[in-house]
Every structure is written in structure tokens, then in C-alpha cells.
């Protein structure tokens, strides 16, 4: 329980939180804006990294590798979208189907191994857990990911203010009204799922570089971590009246808080194997809170006219 150990670990936790914050922004787009629970991300959170490593091992530039990872994520999102809209499969099931299929694809991408490493000394990675301390500022992983996050938020803020972006928001808000206003809701759902999964795969590519390897199980429970970041951001900053860009920033901050808390929990000596259980519990509690509040604590006179005298 050496406090120095904890302090030493914090920058790393911060970097991981930032990366998962980007992933959580992808989750936010489907969960909050499209009003769909998209489980595809458990697959794409591995696919992006696998594609990125594959491309880099073949000698491509890191930016091109990340772009292709982004496109691969979009393709996965498109599959889920088509399963959902064209074939009428419920969104959750469509996501699960794509995610399961992706597991095989991910294994192939990783050369039929469960993980694939990339040597940070041999390849020119954009970020790495080795680039957190003792590197020039412009090589600092935390700074680079933070800048990427801000650029991403700026792009999304612009996009969801355009005609097309507004129609995606309308589709998630009220599909009946959207169709009555001439919006192709099926197309917009597919588009939203593509953008979301593209962002998740991009985050996956970053995370893989950070760790120095891609793992076929990297995406397991990713949706829960993404939701945790979304919910933590909402709980901590939800009362602030904010525009769309700020809301995305809160999601990112939620990711950082999640990883910082995780680090503290581990510092207290928690078994890392238990972390997924803890994550699931935390998300379950926060998802359930509004319902509990409504049902048990917000009803005046639940026992027949409570006097507050």
C-alpha cells in the first residue's frame, strides 16, 4: 500500500481512461443518440486493434493503419445495421450476432493466435505505455490522446449539427416523426451504427498500440466499460447545462474517472480477476438508480400521505 505506487500508476490510468473515453463516445452515439443498445462494440473493440497491428506489421504507416481500423469498424457497424433494419432483427440480437461472427474474423486477423504483439522499438507507434514519462511533450501519449479526443469531439459536434447529423438525431428521438418528415430512418440507423463502431475500432487501434499487443479477448465486456463511462460522466456532470460537445467531453472524462477509480481499487489490493464483476455491478447500480428513485423514493405519500411537519 505504498502511495508512491499509486501515484506512479495514475498517468497510465489516465491514458487508458482517455482511450476508453473515445470508445465510450462511440457507445454514447448509439446508446444515447440512436437509442439502441449496440453490442457489436465487444467485437469491434478487438477488430480495430487487430487490423491496426496487421497493417503495421505489413509496413504501413500508423495513421493509415488507424484509418483502415476505423473503416473496418464501420463495416462491422454496417453489418449490424443491415441485420437490424433490412432483416428486422432486434438491435441487441443483431449486435450479438455480428460480435460473435467478429470473434472468428478477429482470430484470423491475429493470424489464428489469441494475441499478437508489436514491438514498440521496431515500429513507429503513435502512442505506447512507454511514452508516458521521460519523453518529449509532443510524444507524450496522454497529450496525443487528449488532442485526438478533442479533435474527434469537434468533428462530431460539427457533424451532428448538419442536416444529415440532425436526421440521425431525429431518428433516435422519434422514428415515426422522422419518417413523416421524409427521413429514411433505416439508412440513418445504419449510418449511426457505422460511425459508432468506426470510432470504437479507432479506439481499439489506439489501445492496442498503447498495450503493445492485440488480444482476441480485448473487447470482452467493452460495452459495459463504455456504458460505465457514459453513466459516470452523466452522474458527475449531468446537472451542468451543456451543449453536445460538452456532453461528449463528459463521456471522455467519465472514462478517465472510471480508470482512476479502478486503479485505486487495485491499489487497495483487489484481485484483477474481479474487476469485470465490479464493473458490471457499478453499471447495474447506476443504470438502475433512476428507476429505483422513481419507484421507491419519489412518490409522495407512498404510505398514504406522509406529513413532513
Amino acid at each position: 500500500m505504498n502511495i508512491a505506487n499509486l501515484l506512479n500508476a495514475l498517468p497510465g490510468a489516465c491514458a487508458q481512461g482517455l482511450i476508453w473515453g473515445i470508445m465510450a463516445i462511440g457507445v454514447y452515439l448509439t446508446y444515447r443518440i440512436l437509442d439502441l443498445a449496440d453490442l457489436t462494440v465487444d467485437g469491434t473493440m478487438c477488430t480495430g486493434g487487430a487490423v491496426c497491428i496487421l497493417m503495421m506489421l505489413k509496413g504501413y504507416n500508423v495513421w493509415i493503419a488507424m484509418l483502415v481500423a476505423f473503416l473496418a469498424g464501420m463495416a462491422a457497424g454496417m453489418v449490424t445495421g443491415i441485420l437490424h433494419t433490412f432483416l428486422g432483427i432486434p438491435a441487441i440480437l443483431a449486435g450479438i450476432l455480428t460480435q460473435l461472427g467478429l470473434y472468428s474474423i478477429n482470430l484470423r486477423l491475429l493470424g489464428n493466435k489469441s494475441n499478437q504483439a508489436i514491438n514498440v522499438d521496431k515500429y513507429d507507434l503513435l502512442i505506447s505505455l512507454r511514452y508516458i514519462k521521460d519523453v518529449p511533450l509532443y510524444r507524450n501519449t496522454i497529450l496525443i490522446v487528449a488532442v485526438i479526443t478533442l479533435v474527434l469531439i469537434a468533428i462530431l459536434y460539427w457533424f451532428f449539427g448538419t442536416e444529415l447529423g440532425c436526421s440521425i438525431r431525429a431518428t433516435g428521438s422519434n422514428a415515426n416523426m422522422s419518417r413523416a418528415q421524409g427521413i429514411n430512418t433505416d439508412l440513418n440507423k445504419v449510418l449511426g451504427l457505422m460511425i459508432s463502431n468506426g470510432i470504437v475500432a479507432f479506439a481499439s487501434a489506439l489501445y492496442t498500440q498503447y498495450q503493445g499487443f492485440a488480444d482476441v479477448n480485448a473487447g470482452r465486456g467493452a460495452i459495459v466499460i463504455g456504458l460505465a463511462a457514459v453513466i459516470i460522466g452523466q452522474v458527475l456532470f449531468g446537472r451542468i447545462h451543456a451543449n453536445f460537445a460538452c456532453k461528449l467531453l463528459f463521456v471522455s472524462l467519465g472514462g478517465i474517472v472510471y480508470y482512476l477509480v479502478l486503479q485505486v481499487v487495485m491499489w487497495f489490493g483487489a484481485n484483477t480477476n474481479d474487476l469485470k464483476l465490479v464493473s458490471a455491478l457499478v453499471v447495474a447500480v447506476f443504470l438502475g438508480l433512476p428507476h429505483l428513485k422513481e419507484k421507491y423514493f419519489n412518490r409522495i405519500g407512498r404510505k398514504g400521505g406522509v406529513s413532513r411537519a
Binding site: T162, E163, C166, S167, G172, N174, G182
Partner: peptide
Amino acid sequence: TGTAASMQIEENLALASRRGALRTLKPGI
């Protein structure tokens, strides 16, 4: 049914004024 609750009045109107038109990357309003 007829309006998008999570969007502003002007955003709803902007959606409606583009009924039948192709929605592009131009500003939504």
C-alpha cells in the same frame, strides 16, 4: 408522435422544412 422531444423547437422546424429534400452536410439550421 409528431415532434422529437429531445430536440429544440427550431431544430424540429428545421427538420420539417427539409422534408422531401436530400439531407447533406450543410448546416442543419
